[in-house]
Design a protein around this nucleic acid. Structure first.
Lengths: 198, 198
DNA sequence: AATCTACCTGCACGATGGTCCAGGTTCACA
DNA sequence: TGTGAACCTGGACCATCGTGCAGGTAGATT
């Protein structure tokens, strides 16, 4: 009855997600330019025509990848903000200098990680993001993670939060063209300045 | 004698710059993915093999385009900063509210222009910029305009200026995925917040 | 005039790309 | 067990790509 149909569907979905994950790996390694039916198929270990079967066109595949990627990004940044906030709250309540990492420390560490070990992933995300600016079909997916983030801040903070996110974006993009990824310590001053209240 | 040889060389250089300009137009229209020997040749109105003759490989062509583009960007942002500064100086010296656009107005207008009429150009710049993060050969060219800009600020401003540039980058990139390019008025609050001194 | 050299181009080759489709397999259901 | 629909795949078609090269041209040199 249901279990069979679900098993069928689950298996179909599983292959789809495998393809998506393979696509993301290809983008991380070779960029969006390296995404072809054949490279993705080889990466996923599935026949070439399986890609065209599940995703009619390459654009569909990229859209699906971007959506999946956006979800990951949103949840990730969500937790980053959450942690930064609780630290900030702690810091304010206990007034002055105390042990433990500050919000700026936390954010700097995450940026350093995004530019170091997770560099490929960061590049992939911005490539997809930029691709969205060229193809309207991708824009809703690209906007989603921004919307998710902005929807969870108080309204009187909206501008400050938007500038904060813009600053993060800028620091990441500028960090991507460094030969050596910047350390958290090098990023700290900029992040501190960015977080400093007006 | 010299004049003849120079005339020859000038003509050669002229064709080269024509190819570069055509490449930039192609990137503005179709993105880096649309750059092929043939598309660029058609855009420039030259035979296909002329591209391979002047630029051994496509990478060389992209590098040359990025260098040319970086020079334009640097000079452009230079004047933006220059104007913003003089406005700021004027504003500080005459203390409070007065007629004329503020620095934030000026910057917002430029951002709105970059996201509106010059949208294609802005996309092209960021695509090249992101491409540089993947190909080390392009990085020096991509870093140049950042270096030019950071070299012309006083040292005690360095962090603030870097954050300012990062914020600009972020606002531009986020603005690129809007269906309707944001107006200067919409951008103004964020720019004002970004410019607000700590 | 003869020659040389740098400059340029048409053309074709091999590789790779997206896309399509006829046919095979699996599985719920009658 | 038969049947139909959903699922999947090997293989081929045609377009386009990067690249190399034989050959052509125009100005410089002798």
């Amino acid at each position: 009855m249901r279990s069979q149909a679900d098993g069928r569907k689950v298996r179909g979905e599983r292959r789809r997600t495998e393809i998506i994950e393979a696509t993301l790996r290809v983008i991380e390694r070779d960029g969006v330019a390296g995404v072809t039916h054949r490279t993705v198929a080889r990466e996923a270990g599935v026949p070439t025509s399986s890609i065209t079967y599940h995703y009619a066109t390459l654009d569909d595949l990229l859209i699906a990848t971007l959506i999946s990627c956006a979800r990951d990004m949103a949840t990730e940044v969500y937790w980053m903000i959450d942690r930064a906030r609780s630290r900030e709250g702690l810091r304010r309540s206990s007034d002055s200098t105390m042990g433990g990492p500050s919000a700026a420390d936390e954010v700097s560490a995450l940026l350093a990680e995004a530019l170091g070990p997770r560099r490929g992933r960061t590049m992939a995300e911005y490539e997809l993001y930029l691709l969205a600016s060229r193809r309207p079909a991708l824009r809703p997916a690209a906007r989603r993670w921004l919307d998710v983030l902005t929807s969870m801040v108080r309204h009187d903070d909206e501008v400050a939060f938007r500038v904060f996110l813009a600053g993060i974006d800028g620091l990441l993009i500028q960090g991507l063209i460094d030969d050596e990824p910047p350390s958290a310590a090098e990023l700290l001053p900029a992040v501190e300045y960015l977080l400093k209240p007006r």
